[in-house]
Write a protein that binds this DNA or RNA. Structure first.
Lengths: 183, 207
DNA sequence: GCTTTAAAAAGTAAAGT
DNA sequence: ACTTTACTTTGGAAAGC
């Protein structure tokens, strides 16, 4: 019924793979790893099977960004654990992986009048400053996501913890615009 | 009791001193931008409301003053861009924009996004263009708005393109560079906007 | 608040050909 | 003029300034 045809563009997740990490050691063993403690406390490491980027911290915590699926997040983190094991670093067996944010795009396939939408949704509920950015920012409480609405009818949904949050967010926007006769 | 009395005086002094500083800042910036008294007064009202609601906490007086002036210009329909406000203030555009969003929400200013039409009088006078060209520009912008050619585009860029076209139609042609300079956008933006306007509104531009 | 990561949307900008 | 690169906005975690 409401297959919003959402396209997930990026998934951000965090987990803990060990109690602590020697980032200098990892930097020397991992090809392409970047670590500048004074610039940023985390080590940056990019992988390309499923494409993703890691931020590894001395606490053993890891942030994974850039994955296109929630499943890929688990895959790349599993691969990361194996790579760490291969250089003699032990990791936690079944790490608890938390999806922190999902960025998705969608398309309403209609040209939109952002001024009318701004009034329709209520100026106090939106932010629309075309001088600074072409998109209208709409924050939704349920699901708790932020939707960027463009005059082209394209949308960007972010802040969701699951793909369902993103799809519901798009539906909320679609329905509200429809109810106001702006679709 | 005496301590409390003295403290009140101190607080009062500090409050008055800060307010005086803020108002002088508003005056300095408004003068630098050549803004009329009504706008300065509006900005002062916005600033005082911000003070009354304790919105200055954690923010610099300069930042709130700059944001108040930015908001006042919009309320009075004589908008200045964040870049223009930044030039006369000691705060970054990012900080001004952030503070503006904050006070705009907290004071429920409910301002519509800046209309390209509000830039026409200032840009035209800066180009020494008469009322006829201004009227033509506004007419073009109204049509552009109806045909959905302004959503998401920078107001100054759209206004500049409309003025560029109007100046040609009225036989008082200004170059893209001249218009771009007064509008604070690049020639590329004028070109992109005017091509879109000319095509969608079926306006023939003979150079 | 900042720093760093990734990605999309559309507009604007700057640099190089 | 055209192409490429890059910055604007949104969200979230990480450790530390």
């Amino acid at each position: 019924m409401s297959e919003s045809s959402i396209k997930i563009e990026n998934v951000v997740a965090s987990t803990k793979l060990a109690e602590e990490f020697d980032l200098t050691l990892i930097e020397s063993q991992f090809e392409g790893a970047e670590y500048n403690k004074q610039k940023f406390p985390g080590l940056v490491y990019r992988v390309s099977d499923p494409k993703a980027a890691f931020l590894v911290f001395t606490s053993g915590k890891v942030v994974c960004t850039g994955a296109k699926n929630v499943a890929d997040v688990h895959t790349v983190i599993g691969n990361m654990a194996k790579k760490l094991n291969s250089i003699g670093i032990k990791t936690i067996e079944n790490p608890q992986i938390t999806v922190q944010n999902i960025v998705a795009s969608a398309d309403l396939h209609t040209i939109l009048n952002l001024n009318a939408i701004a009034i329709g949704l209520g100026l106090e509920n939106i932010e629309y400053e075309p001088e600074q950015f072409p998109g209208l920012v709409y924050r939704i409480d349920e699901p708790k996501v932020v939707v960027l609405i463009f005059s082209s009818g394209k949308l960007v949904v972010t802040g969701g913890k699951s793909p369902e949050d993103c799809e519901r967010g798009v539906e909320v926007v679609r329905q509200q615009l429809d109810n106001m006769g702006l679709l | 009791r005496l301590r409390k009395w003295q403290r009140r005086i101190r607080v009062s002094n500090a409050t008055e001193r800060n307010l005086a500083f803020a108002l002088s800042e508003l005056d300095r910036m408004a003068s630098a931008l050549g803004l009329p008294r009504t706008v300065r007064e509006t900005a002062a009202v916005v600033y005082r409301k911000a003070v009354d609601k304790n919105l200055i906490r954690g923010r610099s007086i300069e930042g709130v003053a700059a944001a108040a002036l930015y908001a006042a210009c919009r309320q009075c329909s004589v908008p200045r861009t964040l870049d223009e406000i930044e030039e006369v203030s000691r705060v970054s555009r990012k900080e001004i924009g952030r503070t503006y969003r904050f006070i705009s929400r907290e004071l429920a200013l409910k301002l519509m996004p800046t209309s390209p039409i509000d830039y026409v009088p200032r840009f035209c006078s800066g180009l020494n263009l008469k009322g006829e060209v201004q009227s033509k520009s506004v007419e073009i912008l109204r049509q552009a708005s109806e045909k959905e050619l302004t959503s998401g585009r920078g107001p100054t860029g759209v206004a500049a393109a409309a003025i560029y076209i109007a100046s040609i139609l009225c036989g008082e042609r200004r170059t893209q560079r001249e218009v771009a300079d007064v509008a604070g956008v690049t020639e590329v933006t004028i070109r992109n906007r005017y091509k879109e306007l000319a095509e969608e509104l079926d306006i023939e531009i003979i150079l």
